[in-house]
């Protein structure tokens, strides 16, 4: 399953950055910077920030995120997001591994409300606090390539972005999907839809509550957490990666309709 998922993630990463055509009128709800010279779709967070600055709501983008979330929750984080894919690969690098407190998952809601919506609305998208100006994905896909293509850049600001990127890489190497859990504002949007997602992992009557699923879960969800059990309550953090299904000794986990 993991090999299949990595192949699907790679295919999506290529599709989003194939560079043969540009379709920026469409937002695909994954974190992929539209300022990338070879990007195909526009980034929902970038568009939301720009619209917020104008005092508008991008209905197609918000509707697209909501529709994706209602259908599959965070399944796009697990199967389609190029940066999620990059994080999976970075975590495979041998490095000091650490745990983080569970309350840190609420930080991403603050990032969504603060850096993606409030900063462009009250200040401007030119503000250094605007999410896109700090985003590590934008640094990799846009700031660095354009600095090379154009041969000039704001060195001081690029240095700040590189420091942030380096810090995120270090954290991702030490904690699986750190960015998805703690920082990603798009993950926050999709997390809010997890509870009502139509397609979601569920357990059958064969489950023996051995909690093997909890041990292998990259998002550290718990099948027994009160009010936030991953299968019974559709926990916000589940990315439907189905790692749990692969390891389940009684094969009692399935995706809805599976």
């Amino acid at each position: 399953m993991e090999t299949l998922r990595l192949k699907v993630q790679l295919a999506f990463a290529i599709l989003f950055n194939i560079g043969l055509f540009q379709w920026h009128t469409v937002c695909f709800p994954v974190l992929n910077c539209h300022s990338c010279p070879i990007s195909v779709f526009s980034c929902p967070l970038g568009v939301i920030g720009q619209f917020t600055q104008l005092g508008l709501v991008p209905l197609t983008v918000v509707g697209g995120i909501a529709l994706a979330g209602v259908i599959g929750g965070r399944i796009l984080c697990g199967w389609a997001c190029p940066f999620g894919f990059a994080q999976e690969l970075l975590y495979k690098i041998p490095y000091f591994k650490f745990r983080i407190p569970s309350w840190t998952r609420f930080v991403k809601y603050g990032v969504l409300g603060g850096l993606v919506i409030a900063v462009p609305f009250f200040l401007s998208t030119q503000s250094p606090l605007y999410f896109c100006r700090l985003c590590p994905v934008a640094t990799i896909e846009s700031a660095i390539p354009w600095a090379v293509i154009k041969g000039s850049t704001d060195v001081a600001w690029l240095s700040v972005r590189l420091v942030i990127l380096f810090a995120v890489i270090i954290l991702v190497m030490g904690h699986r999907r750190f960015f998805c859990k703690v920082i990603c504002p798009l993950g926050a949007c999709l997390s809010l839809c997890n509870r009502v997602a139509a397609v979601f992992p569920e357990r059958t009557e064969d489950c023996t509550e051995c909690t093997v699923c909890a041990k292998v879960c990259p998002m550290e969800t718990d099948p027994r957490a009160k009010g936030a059990a991953v299968f019974d309550n559709h926990a916000e953090e589940c990315i439907s990666c189905l790692e749990c299904r692969k390891k389940c000794p009684t094969e009692s986990i399935r995706l809805w309709g599976g």
Binding site: P58, L59, T60, V61, V62, G63, G64, A66, L67, V70, I71, C193, R195, V196, A197, A198
Partner: peptide, 16 residues
């Protein structure tokens, strides 16, 4: 909730 949100999001996409 799922069906209501689905209809609302589809309506937002179509109108937008």
């Amino acid at each position: 909730f799922t069906y209501t949100l689905m209809i609302l999001s589809l309506a937002a996409i179509v109108y937008g």
